[in-house]
Design a protein around this nucleic acid. Structure first.
Lengths: 248, 248
DNA sequence: TAGGATTTGTGCGTATGTATT
DNA sequence: TAATACATACGCACAAATCCT
């Protein structure tokens, strides 16, 4: 009765509202720590002490350990007995395979099943477009990364195929830090323009009901973003200037 | 030095050997319980008591709870405070989305990255073919399901793209029970023939180095197996005979 | 409706493993 | 090399939640 039988709800995650207080706390702590990691508040290599977190959130170590176990399964942290819990490092080379897979999954986004898109969902995406316009003046990379995260989470939640939805979100959070890490050497103005265009195009595709196009748009932007960062890495390695022009 | 840098090892699972005793025990218990669930030794609805399992394996509840948490994230069990831990139910309708996704991922198996296939790997698949021939006489569904599991795990471990490898295996174990559950009303002889053909074709494709064909073969067999079970369900629902001929 | 039995979640002290001095 | 410091893993007792009588 609470959830449609065609939509399995395997994990204590899943955006479906938590029924118990314990599950609600789990989701809250998970989201907080995940965002801190993905927004580089906890940089790669940062040490996460169980005792410290327990004190900060007013619980014992036990619930903290549950959250850390989940973050470990998502590849965001690494725990070693006797050593500690540290935030995993991210770089383009090690996450190349994740990017290749994300490209293919993006194509399936709207084709495997129709997007679940209500008018309220479209309105939410519109607010993201508005936020993007405002951020153009501020030029704060972290806030821009947060907007990107909010938009992607909102969009992914519309994916009709439940397992594809979970996997897509999981892989997104595995790679999202790379962009923010690369920002200092990138053209922020150009990045904002690309992203604003993506939001606009996705909304347009959803409005006319072309769900397959949504996936194609996302795939194209993932691919281009990855290529921009790859070129950047080559430019840095080659000692070229960090200007707007990057030639091979 | 222990693992190539291009192959991330996020979870305490990952077939990579466990370095510590605790991780080895985790993997061992996880595999034992997972197999019991997927081979219907623990049928859907079966109650798993933490205290009982702790006693059986000679540990406290803590390591057991870690394993159960992982099995829950894989969708094989469900835990509820005050109620207990029960094995999830599986049926074709609720896992329809998983099947659709598995079809698409199968296509990517050998195309996203080359299969990692050594001579030893090929020899292992040959033993599966031999086991299949022997099982033809025995006609024991559970042993046949175990062979299918061993073959799939061996094949999936060759997938070059690491995240695709993990996801493919995860989704396989989410659906593997359905076949064994459907066996009593199916033509076992026909199922064995189909599977033997799949093993043979996969080995042939790997031998000639056509990695893309491996995925196509798997996709075709997943699709046909799903269709056979779907027809079976319709036949049962319609009250038709359970004979070999099933016409739409 | 209330109370007891059962089961998972939590809290905390201890054991074990690692790194550094 | 040995000892010390520190962090995670473990084991046990208690709390909270659910179900049945």
């Amino acid at each position: 009765m609470k959830t449609p039988t065609t939509d399995r709800d395997p994990s204590p995650l899943s955006e479906a509202g938590a029924s118990t207080a314990a599950q609600a706390r789990f989701q809250r702590l998970h989201k907080i720590l995940r965002d801190r990691i993905c927004l580089l508040d906890y940089a790669p290599g940062h040490h996460l002490g169980e005792e410290d977190l327990a004190q900060e959130f007013g619980t014992s170590r036990t619930p903290i350990r549950r959250v850390l176990g989940w973050l470990e399964s998502e590849g965001l942290i690494e725990r070693r007995h006797g050593v500690g819990t540290i935030v995993t490092d991210v770089d383009l080379r090690s996450l190349d395979q994740v990017y290749r897979l994300r490209l293919e999954l993006a194509s399936l986004m709207g084709r495997l099943a129709p997007m679940r898109c209500s008018d309220a969902d479209l309105a939410l995406l519109q607010t993201h477009l508005t936020r993007c316009s405002k951020l153009r003046q501020q030029r704060e990379p972290t806030e821009f990364a947060r907007l990107n995260m909010d938009f992607c989470v909102a969009l992914f939640s519309m994916i009709g195929n439940a397992p594809l939805r979970e996997i897509t979100e999981r892989l997104y959070f595995q790679t999202s830090r790379i962009w923010l890490k690369s920002v200092p050497a990138m053209d922020l103005e150009e990045e904002i323009s690309h992203f604003e265009r993506q939001i606009f195009d996705v909304i347009e595709a959803l409005r006319v009901g072309d769900h397959g196009a949504v996936g194609d748009i996302c795939r194209a932007h993932i691919s281009m973003s990855f290529n921009r960062m790859t070129l950047l890495r080559h430019a840095q390695a080659g000692g070229a200037s960090l200007g707007a022009t990057a030639t091979a």
